[in-house]
């Protein structure tokens, strides 16, 4: 479904602030893979996700989604294939617009924006139904401005919006990191349910190793711009946090795992 082939990305090339964020990174996701991504700060997790989404263009290498080469496509054109939820709850929704308007915008992802009405009656009924499933009381607030919602509600809404128009690929960039533990759990549960129901191919970055083990069918660990650990199936299911730390130390050849990776 997703093929990342030997991509490189360097920020501020040729200056003192030069940062080689991605070095010869390759990754292939099969249909229906739910991959969790962990790694320390600066390992390149977000850069990888943003490169796939088209926020950054890569220096070399190629990115294919469902066989289509999207390496040169601008962000808004790739959005046709990709649903995204950001770390910052403010980023995924338009605060000054209504809940239903945000959903209607998302439901038209990848379609031409015409002079037809921005939202129809049937859509409203459908959105109400979908919001009810989230169980956050949003189904009665369709015309509320999104800016009035809590961070957790906004993330749950963004998640729903990312999947209204079924994406080929769902990208979650630490989407629960800014939430309190209880809300984070709720949003993670909703993530599992939505990914399961729609059989979505998913990449989820997390800082929480327990979450990384508990969710998805495959786990990758990044270090210094490339992938150092890639486990799946039974092996992944039986992983413990300690084993993960040991794997990291081995892969990175240092003991810095404890301070760089341990965040849970």
């Amino acid at each position: 479904m997703l093929e990342i082939k030997n991509i490189y990305k360097t920020f501020n090339a040729g200056t003192v602030n030069e940062k080689k964020a991605l070095k010869d990174l390759s990754l292939t996701l099969n249909d229906g893979d739910f991959v969790t991504v962990i790694g320390g700060n600066g390992a390149g997790k977000s850069t990888m996700l943003n490169s796939v989404a088209g926020v950054y263009s890569v220096d070399s290498g190629s990115i294919l989604i469902d066989g289509v080469d999207v390496t040169e496509l601008p962000e808004y054109k790739r959005a046709k294939y990709i649903g995204r939820v950001f770390q910052d709850p403010m980023m995924g929704t338009a605060a000054t617009m209504q809940i239903e308007e945000n959903m209607a915008l998302a439901a038209r992802r990848g379609k031409p924006r015409t002079l037809r009405s921005g939202i129809t009656k049937e859509e409203r009924a459908e959105y109400k139904k979908q919001l009810a499933i989230l169980d956050l009381g949003l189904e009665d607030r369709l015309t509320s401005k999104v800016g009035l919602l809590s961070g957790g509600q906004r993330q749950a809404l963004t998640l729903l919006m990312a999947t209204l128009q079924k994406p080929k690929l769902l990208l979650l960039d630490e989407h629960t990191a800014a939430l309190d533990p209880k809300t984070a759990q709720k949003v993670l549960d909703a993530t599992d349910r939505i990914v399961e129901q729609n059989k979505l191919t998913t990449l989820m970055i997390t800082h929480n190793m327990r979450d990384a083990i508990a969710h998805g069918n495959r786990l990758i660990m990044m270090y210094d711009g490339h992938i150092v650990v890639d486990v799946s199936g039974e092996e992944k299911k039986n992983l413990t946090v300690e084993q993960l730390l040991a794997l990291f130390s081995k892969a990175s050849g240092s003991d810095e795992a404890d301070d760089k990776l341990l965040l849970s």
Partner: peptide, 23 residues
């Protein structure tokens, strides 16, 4: 209130969100 008009409002309200939604 049209699809295009709403996408223009989204462009001003949150450019990141708009691009993520294919605008």
């Amino acid at each position: 209130g049209t699809e295009l008009g709403a996408s223009i409002r989204a462009t001003g309200a949150n450019g990141n969100m708009a691009r993520a939604q294919g605008i």
